[in-house]
Amino acid sequence: LRTVEMKKGPTDSLGISIAGGVGSPLGDVPIFIAMMHPTGVAAQTQKLRVGDRIVTICGTSTEGMTHTQAVNLLKNASGSIEMQV
């Protein structure tokens, strides 16, 4: 596991798309980074990659989380965001 910290302002975009989660079209698979926009906050860290499994978001485990719950957690996060992948 590695921990990645990002700074995100209220109008900034992380610039990632995620897939997976409980009840997702892919089945109940762990949440992972499906796409990254090169100008997004996540890409700027140069520490995240497409395919990385997201284990925690700001200390909250993604295990058993639906896709929608994970998306909302990421969208609503601002300031210092910590992810374990």
Rank of each mutant, 00 (worst) to 15 (best):
T62E: 03
G40Y: 02
T62W: 01
P25S: 11
L14W: 15
E5T: 15
G64L: 05
G79K: 07
Q69P: 01
E82F: 09
G40H: 05
I18C: 02
C58N: 15
M65R: 02
D28P: 06
C58H: 08
E5H: 15
V50T: 08
D52C: 00
G21K: 02
G21V: 01
S13N: 15
A34C: 10
V41W: 05
L48G: 01
M35A: 15
G9L: 08
R53L: 13
I16M: 14
G27R: 03
V85C: 06
P38S: 07
H67P: 09
S24L: 01
L48F: 07
N72H: 13
I31W: 03
M35H: 15
I57W: 08
G23A: 07
G40F: 07
Q44K: 15
V50F: 00
L1W: 06
S13D: 15
R53I: 15
G59L: 03
T60W: 09
G15S: 03
I31R: 05
I81V: 13
C58W: 05
A43K: 06
K8E: 06
M35Y: 15
Q44V: 05
Q69R: 09
T66F: 06
Q44M: 12
M6L: 11
K75P: 02
L14Q: 02
V55K: 08
E63V: 11
G51C: 04
T66L: 06
I31H: 06
V50S: 05
K75A: 13
G51L: 04
S13Y: 13
H37I: 08
R2Q: 13
M65W: 05
L74I: 13
E63G: 05
P10R: 10
Q46M: 11
G23W: 03
Q69N: 09
V29P: 01
V41T: 10
T66C: 03
G20Y: 03
T62M: 06
H37Y: 09
I16N: 00
D12A: 09
L74K: 04
T56K: 14
A43S: 09
V50W: 02
L73M: 13
H67E: 13
N76V: 08
L74A: 04
I54M: 04
Q44N: 11
G21E: 00
P38A: 07
I31S: 02
Q84S: 10
I33C: 05
G23F: 00
E63W: 06
T39Q: 15
F32V: 09
V22P: 07
D52S: 03
M6I: 12
L26V: 10
S13G: 10
M65V: 02
R2E: 11
R2I: 15
S78Q: 14
L48T: 01
G23P: 03
T11H: 14
E5N: 15
A34Y: 07
T45R: 01
I81K: 01
I31M: 12
D12W: 04
G21R: 01
T45E: 08
V71F: 13
D12H: 10
K75S: 13
H37M: 07
Q46W: 02
V22M: 13
G15P: 03
I54K: 02
K47P: 03
Q46R: 13
A77G: 08
D52V: 01
A19Q: 13
G79Y: 04
K7E: 13
K75V: 09
I81A: 03
